[in-house]
């Protein structure tokens, strides 16, 4: 009995829904409405609720913000020359997206390339800094003792297979002397410098031997960032750079000396 009543109610609700979805004034809807008013109050109230809900849904569904550019872009479709070709491919919105994707890919690729390139360069700088730091900590002996860079140059020219070019350093530092040595398998000129604030070593070599660029700005690499256990607890820092195919690593005992030397611009 209850099941029959439920079925009847469901059928009525479905019929109500069908009628409620007809436009106002539709003869079928008018007819149904007249029939409802002759039925129970409950049916009439349900009918009114349904109409209200439909109206509310219709209003809510229409609440969509229309993009300002829509009209312009649509009118543009009929004006763009060669549009047939374009529209055959895809909508302009998609083309713009595709263009954006290509640009992004290029930018991403460029950034990735730059990052890889930078990271590769940093690795090489670190490697050479590590070798120089090791040399500075273990062997500060010099074969030629002189305060004159030109004298040192002339004496060691035969031992060093490249032209010696002294870098610009702070004038407070004076040359102590130098020797020819090697880092890894590559020839290097070692020079020792001193000032009231501290001492430092400069290693000079062919930048290509260590894969460094022909020309690059000064890169400060703190001792703590270099894999050299003996540098721990010491205020050792390195500066790596290259000029005209020549590579240099400056290793200083104190930060103060490092700054002073790294910012120096006078030729010794």
């Amino acid at each position: 009995m209850q099941e029959d009543r439920d079925n009847l109610e469901e059928k009525l609700t479905e019929k109500m829904l069908e009628a409620s979805l007809l436009p106002a004034g539709d003869p079928l809807r008018n007819e149904f409405e007249a029939g409802i008013s002759r039925q129970s109050e409950k049916a009439e109230s349900l009918w009114l609720e349904m109409l209200q809900e439909n109206e509310r849904l219709r209003i809510d569904l229409r609440r969509v913000e229309i993009p300002e550019s829509l009209g312009v872009s649509l009118l543009g479709l009929a004006q763009t020359p060669g549009y047939r070709w374009l529209s055959g491919l895809a909508a302009p919105g998609r083309l713009l997206k595709a263009a954006a994707v290509v640009l992004l890919a290029l930018a991403f690729g460029g950034t990735l390339f730059y990052q890889l390139d930078t990271s590769e360069k940093n690795k090489k700088f670190k490697a050479v800094a590590e070798l120089a730091l090791d040399g500075h900590l273990h062997d500060q002996n010099v074969d030629v003792v002189t305060l004159d860079p030109a004298y040192l140059q002339s004496h060691l020219a035969g031992d060093i297979p490249f032209e010696i070019v002294m870098p610009a350093i702070n004038s407070e530092f004076t040359l102590v002397g130098g020797r020819s040595c090697s880092m890894g398998a590559h020839p290097v000129l070692y020079t020792r410098w001193a000032s009231r604030e501290g001492r430092c070593s400069i290693f000079q070599f062919r930048s290509s031997d260590f894969g460094l660029p022909q020309q690059s700005g000064k890169e400060v690499i703190p001792g703590s960032k270099v894999n050299c256990p003996e540098a721990r607890g010491r205020d050792c820092n390195t500066v790596v750079w290259s000029e005209a195919g020549r590579g240099y690593v400056l290793v200083a005992d104190s930060t103060c000396a490092l700054k002073s030397i790294a910012s120096g611009s006078q030729k010794p």
Binding site: P67, L74, A91, G93
Partner: peptide
Amino acid sequence: ERETAQDLVQETFSEAWR
């Protein structure tokens, strides 16, 4: 989705134009 909706409308009108 707003962007997809705009694309759909543009595709609709480009089809209509053709």
